[in-house]
Design a binder for these strands. Structure first.
Length: 254
DNA sequence: AATCGTCACAACCGCCGCCTA
DNA sequence: TTAGGCGGCGGTTGTGACGAT
């Protein structure tokens, strides 16, 4: 469907002076837009809005179509793989939402932007640091992202009934989560986020395996599992031992 | 039950670059 | 060459849902 909508000839004075609608779209408006695009194709949004009889700006129509009505759009339930990809791509490109969205089929720049603001920035806020700070970027790269990789691998392993083996080797096992096309040929592995690339003052990568943390750094009688369960904001990404670790290694002021 | 705070997400706004007449 | 229109992008706001008090 690559047909550009033809300019409509009909333009009454009433149309010329009609009030433009704003705010949430109605079912009727959605239907009009879908119908029109099904027949005439998308593009030339201003004339499309007029011709479809929508009292909306072209921009509004475009946004509604691209972010909501488009048949291939996917909404909600951002997967672990998608989360990891967003973190990875954002670390490369920053707030280039549309560029990031190109690598997540069906996801819109708006949704990724919202995800970043509501989830990622929430974590930064909880850590009392700026989302663009080196501290938080380190935390993402060396804690959050490896954890995501572990969870993805664990989920995959569970699916194939080999959970135990994969969990034990998850920090060194290479997993190709994304196509070469998506990440410029780079493989995403939990070990690729290991500390050796860190510019922090942490001396030894040995001390960084999150699995060792509770033994090496944390001897409290705290039940981490229940703590995680009772803190929804943790979103299953950071847990209590992570916080203690961040505090120790990245000078987080928590 | 009412109120308040937070979260998630849809939608809008302003700016910028490209295209075309 | 240039001015105006348009589409795309990133930032911001508005609002409904939901949980806590």
């Amino acid at each position: 469907m690559d047909v550009k909508p033809r300019d409509c000839v009909h333009q009454s004075n009433e149309d010329d002076h009609m009030e433009l609608r704003r705010g949430p779209w109605t079912v009727e408006e959605d239907f009009k837009l879908i119908e029109y695009i099904a027949t005439h194709g998308e593009g030339r949004w201003n004339s499309l809005a007029r011709c479809a009889g929508l009292k909306r700006t072209g921009k509004s129509c475009r946004l509604r179509w691209l972010n909501y009505l488009r048949p291939d759009v996917r909404r909600g339930n951002i997967t672990l793989e998608e989360q990891l990809l967003i973190l990875e791509l954002h670390s490369r490109w920053g707030n280039r939402w549309s560029k990031i969205a190109q690598h997540l089929p069906g996801r819109t720049d708006n949704e990724i932007k919202n995800y970043w603001r509501t989830r990622v920035q929430k974590h930064a806020k909880q850590l009392k640091c700026d989302v663009n700070s080196k501290q938080f970027k380190d935390a993402m790269r060396y804690l959050w992202m490896p954890r995501l990789v572990e969870r993805i691998q664990a989920a995959a392993a569970t699916a194939s009934y080999t959970t135990a083996e994969v969990t034990a080797t998850s920090t060194t096992t290479s997993t190709s989560l994304f196509s070469d096309d998506q990440l410029g040929g780079a493989q995403v592995t939990s070990s690729s986020y290991a500390l050796e690339n860190s510019s922090t003052t942490v001396a030894s990568s040995d001390s960084f395996g999150t699995r060792e943390l509770s033994g090496n750094y944390y001897n409290h009688n705290m039940d981490f599992q229940s703590l995680e369960q009772n803190n929804p904001w943790l979103d299953n990404l950071f847990n209590a031992e992570d916080f203690y670790f961040l505090q120790q290694q990245f000078n987080f002021n928590m």
